[in-house]
């Protein structure tokens, strides 16, 4: 695991942007090497002493993070050209990727930048609202247990439910761009998740109708990058195929029965 020789200094090339519409620019920072560093701890060190390699006083890098345990989904960024969570991006592994070179940090490219490495992922949350991402229970009163389910059913739902809305799948997806209307893998996963619940299924027709709109499931080009970059191993491609099957059946039914 541990490479024989470690540098004394780790160099970070960071893409910065001062405001939403500002021009991005690069800055290089140096951090003394220690074992077991991750990208977050380096950004913390830079925040304490934001001086560039050229010796110029700068400002702390702005980035989004919360749990640092790869369950909240906040700290996604593009590291060495690839999207991932910065909390679980271990410097020792990144150094192996870049050899003697610099570790680059960039904001995600598929979402509008707020500042530096912080992007606005509201589009993902809006989609959850649009697709009725909830189980329509009767209320919080004591109405007994929920529906029983088999361990197999639970397993698929659990795997889908681990999606933390981090946006990795969308960043890596060639079909999803900053300005098109493609919905993207995470929402497909959520639609299948809610359709798999016995009560959640009540809203299935509405979800599928929405899924058939422009930007919906039919636009998926099956590059399958989503499942490759997903940090939580959410079975996104299974979800996509299931969503395909559900919309196929739904559209045929609708063709013969008309709109409800």
């Amino acid at each position: 695991m541990i490479a024989p020789k470690k540098p004394e200094i780790i160099t970070f090339r960071i893409k910065r942007q001062d405001a939403r519409d500002a021009q991005p620019y690069w800055e290089v920072f140096e951090v003394p090497y220690k074992p077991n560093l991750n990208v977050i701890s380096c950004l913390q060190l830079i925040a304490e002493n934001p001086v560039t390699r050229e010796g110029r006083q700068s400002r702390p890098v702005v980035w989004d993070c919360s749990c640092l345990e790869e369950v909240c989904g906040a700290c996604t960024m593009v590291i060495n050209g690839r999207v991932r969570q910065s909390c679980s991006a271990l410097v020792d592994q990144l150094l192996e990727e870049v050899g003697e070179g610099e570790i680059t940090l960039e904001p995600m490219t598929k979402f509008p930048v707020v500042r530096d490495l912080w992007v606005d992922r509201q589009r993902m949350f809006d989609n959850l609202l649009r697709f009725k991402g909830w189980v329509p229970i009767d209320g919080t009163h004591d109405l007994g247990e929920g529906p029983k389910e088999s361990p197999e059913e639970q397993e698929l739902r659990y795997e889908l439910s681990r999606c933390m809305t981090c946006g990795c799948c969308l960043e890596a997806c060639p079909q999803f761009t900053l300005d098109n209307d493609f919905i993207g893998a995470n929402t497909f996963g959520q639609v299948v998740y809610f359709n798999a619940h016995k009560t959640g299924r009540v809203l299935m027709n509405e979800r599928l109708d929405a899924l058939m709109e422009p930007g919906g499931i039919a636009d998926c080009g099956n590059a399958q990058n989503c499942v490759k970059v997903c940090p939580k191993d959410v079975p996104l491609t299974i979800a996509i195929a299931k969503a395909g099957r559900q919309t196929t059946v739904h559209s045929i039914k609708r063709f013969f029965t008309g709109k409800r």
Binding site: V135, I137, T140, D142, L143, G144, E145, G146, K148, E149, S150, P151, E153, Q154, R157, Y158, S161, F194, H197, T199, G200
Partner: peptide, 21 residues
């Protein structure tokens, strides 16, 4: 116990036994 039931109804994927409990 009632809170567990409620969460169950909300769709929390609690681990299951063979009988679905």
């Amino acid at each position: 116990p009632r809170i567990i039931d409620l969460l169950d109804r909300m769709g929390v994927p609690f681990n299951r036994t063979h009988e679905g409990e």
